[in-house]
Write a protein that binds this DNA or RNA. Sequence first.
DNA 1: TTATAATATGAACACATGCTAATATAAGCA
DNA 2: TGCTTATATTAGCATGTGTTCATATTATAA
Lengths: 109, 109
Amino acid sequence: MGEYSDNTGIGENEDLDEETLFVVSQTFKALGDPTRIRILHLLFQHEYSVNQIAENLHLRQSTVSHQLRFLKNLRLVKNRREGTTLFYSHDDEHVINLLKQTIDHAFHS
Amino acid sequence: MGEYSDNTGIGENEDLDEETLFVVSQTFKALGDPTRIRILHLLFQHEYSVNQIAENLHLRQSTVSHQLRFLKNLRLVKNRREGTTLFYSHDDEHVINLLKQTIDHAFHS
DNA sequence: TTATAATATGAACACATGCTAATATAAGCA
DNA sequence: TGCTTATATTAGCATGTGTTCATATTATAA
């Protein structure tokens, strides 16, 4: 078999450098926790405040805040301040699409 | 903005039932480890034996075997026996595509 | 059967992860 | 200023995860 014989044009045989490997694993790790999935899934629709997320998903404020910091560090969500309230929304279309695809795939199987 | 106004047709507002949540998080968890990513990435090309994988990626035979069992439990890889040798290959196009997409995205950014 | 090669398994360990309670910070208002 | 609301942070704990060494299993061949 010849090298580089694939047809999709999507990163087939490129060697995985350390940085890419790190980014990719971090990305999937972010999506590998049920709580974070539920938060991101909620944010599919529109922005929510921290407390709104906590109420909606029956989680502690502290838990939500921690996970939002995690997601924000990876630039998967952003926020907007209004007085003392912070509204969070998603901030990475690619990752949101990964999640949508996978939910869809799991749901219809 | 009206409800259900999205254009992708991909699972927007469906409620996340426990089972879907579990499957999705398991799937991403599988892709959330550098070693498993490297193994799956190697298997993009073609099948490899356990020892071949270990040599290629500079991992212990035991480590590779453990991770392959993990991936096999999730039906992300399959194997084929030839004498005492087991050849592993990927077995989930959807997940492989997720990985390809994400590597591609991370690599060209 | 015995020996050998390839792979799988089990136990132990270090480390990472996620949640919680308590507290701190920040912004708005009386 | 002091009070309230909303969010962030810190430390601690329990659980999960990935690797390793040692050993077991499986299949083949002499």
